[in-house]
Computed example of a mutant assay.
Amino acid sequence: MNKLFGYIFSPLHYLAFGLFLVIFHPIQWLSLKLGGYSAHKRSVDILNFFLVTTYYLMGSRMRFSNKVGLPAGRSIIFIANHQSMYDISPMIWHLRAHHPKFISKIELTRGIPSVSFNLKHGGAANIDRSDPKQSIAEILKLAKRMRENNWSAAIFPEGTRSKDGKMKPFAAGGVITLLKKVPDALVVPVAIKGSWKLTRFGVFPLSFGEKMNWTVLQPIEPAGKTPEDVINEAERAIKEAIAD
């Protein structure tokens, strides 16, 4: 039934999702030109609210749980597992108070309405995986922006999506660089569960009626710990959360 209803409702979801991306592209441009960063960020937040609503067109049941009371005015490094492209919009919307900037592959900065514009102008680190020097330079720029603005970073250390929900080993490089340059940043694991099921049949049809959860886990204070220890602790916490 998930697949059958997916054939019916996937076109509606993609139509709504695409329309929001197209509509908000000029809105982002105008917001940035007329109101600067604050107005642009507000437009991106609202865009992602609407993108999240399109998940309901697929009968998705979603829950974003954040019960830990994250501090305001402090940079945070959000570390999450990665199951599908649908992981991102709920994080942008629900964590919007903390200004999360994603570490993304540079290919996404080209040709995608709204998404590419935001990645270019919203403060993200857009890395070329084939060019380690460029990748490090981008992450260093992000760290500088975090220090100057109390922004946060969001990173998927697996490096690629897990198509079956099973976590891949974390690659520590990007997180280590951020921790070294923003040593007072709080590290917050985020466990994502079930979003891979939405795309388990591929991009079409999407799977109808899936249950998805985002859970903000207990923060990790990096003081007195090596970056490797912090990453390992975050990885263990996420593994335990998605295994429940």
Rank of each mutant, 00 (worst) to 15 (best):
Q28C: 08
G209V: 09
V190R: 03
K225P: 09
V52R: 08
N2H: 12
K141Q: 09
S75E: 05
I127Y: 01
V188P: 01
I27S: 05
A125Y: 03
G59P: 09
K133G: 03
A154Q: 05
P157K: 10
L140I: 07
G174Q: 06
L186Q: 06
I238F: 13
I23G: 09
R96H: 14
A39V: 00
E138N: 12
A172D: 06
G36W: 00
P132W: 12
M62Y: 09
K239A: 07
V22W: 04
I242G: 01
N213Q: 15
A243N: 15
F49Q: 14
I176M: 12
L15P: 00
A124R: 00
A171D: 12
H25Y: 07
G174W: 02
S162N: 05
F50G: 04
D131H: 11
A191G: 06
L108W: 13
Q83R: 08
Y86F: 15
M146Q: 12
I136G: 00
F17E: 11
G123A: 05
N126S: 15
S152T: 06
Y14N: 12
I155C: 01
F170V: 04
R129D: 00
F201G: 00
G202M: 05
L178T: 05
V22F: 06
W93D: 02
V203A: 11
I242K: 03
G209D: 15
I112M: 15
H99I: 04
G165A: 12
I106Q: 15
S38Y: 14
I79G: 01
F20C: 08
K141F: 00
L186N: 06
K67I: 04
M62N: 11
I192D: 07
P205S: 14
H99V: 10
I76S: 02
S195A: 13
L142N: 08
L70H: 08
A153F: 01
K211I: 12
P100Y: 00
K101C: 12
